[in-house]
């Protein structure tokens, strides 16, 4: 993978530093969310199939449409979270937050800690069930100014948030952040 080939250059600052993966439980969270999405696509398809069950000019035999949606959806639910999980990696380094993620669009991002405006830890209902937190990092950047690391154990997310906060507050440079 690309990350492994170029990671050493970045981690030269801290030799023992490694790119970490998310908490495995995030896969279940993603699965539940994708299942909901699949259901949202499946129900209209099923409705369409049912309403056209007895129509004489049906262009598809019964169940083809809803079956396809369901099949693809299930595949999506089963495979996608795993791929996404495997693609995700991040590291909190002395001066930056590094992350690499994306299945189709592979993205490597370096956020210098001094550029962070503020940090949140957020949690939705499903994530709360699994005691996971999402680290949301806000920068003043012009595009994708919010960077999100999903699926961290809540305690760890809060610890990272506090570390970043401390780093920013102890900045010896008193000039404006931007």
């Amino acid at each position: 993978m690309d990350a492994s080939s170029s990671a050493p250059a970045l981690s030269a600052v801290v030799p023992d530093d490694t790119v970490r993966s998310l908490d495995g439980a995030i896969q279940s969270v993603w699965r539940i969310k994708l299942a909901g999405l699949t259901l949202a696509a499946f129900l209209p398809a099923l409705f369409y199939d049912l309403t056209h069950l007895f129509s004489p000019d049906a262009w598809l035999p019964f169940g083809v449409l809803s079956g396809t949606v369901l099949g693809l959806g299930l595949l999506y639910v089963l495979v996608w979270p795993r791929l996404r999980y495997r693609a995700w990696g991040f590291a909190l380094r002395p001066e930056e937050l590094y992350m690499a993620h994306g299945v189709l669009n592979y993205v490597r991002t370096v956020v210098p800690l001094r550029r962070i405006q503020h940090v949140d830890v957020s949690q939705d209902l499903i994530e709360r069930e699994y005691a996971l937190g999402r680290l949301v990092v806000h920068t003043a950047g012009s595009r994708s100014s919010d960077v999100v690391i999903p699926g961290l154990p809540l305690g760890e997310a809060e610890r990272i948030r506090d570390e970043i906060k401390r780093f920013i507050l102890e900045d010896p440079l008193t000039e404006d952040p931007v």
């Binding site: 669009n105 490597r108 003043a140 595009r143 994708s144």
Partner: peptide, 28 residues
């Protein structure tokens, strides 16, 4: 400089290409 990105879409990956983007503070 603000945030550093390299991205590779599915098609770029096939050709072993990447896009480099250095973000600066500002509006979209």
């Amino acid at each position: 400089f603000h945030v550093f990105h390299t991205t590779a879409t599915l098609f770029q990956r096939r050709l072993n290409l990447k896009t480099l983007f250095v973000d600066t503070a500002g509006a979209a």
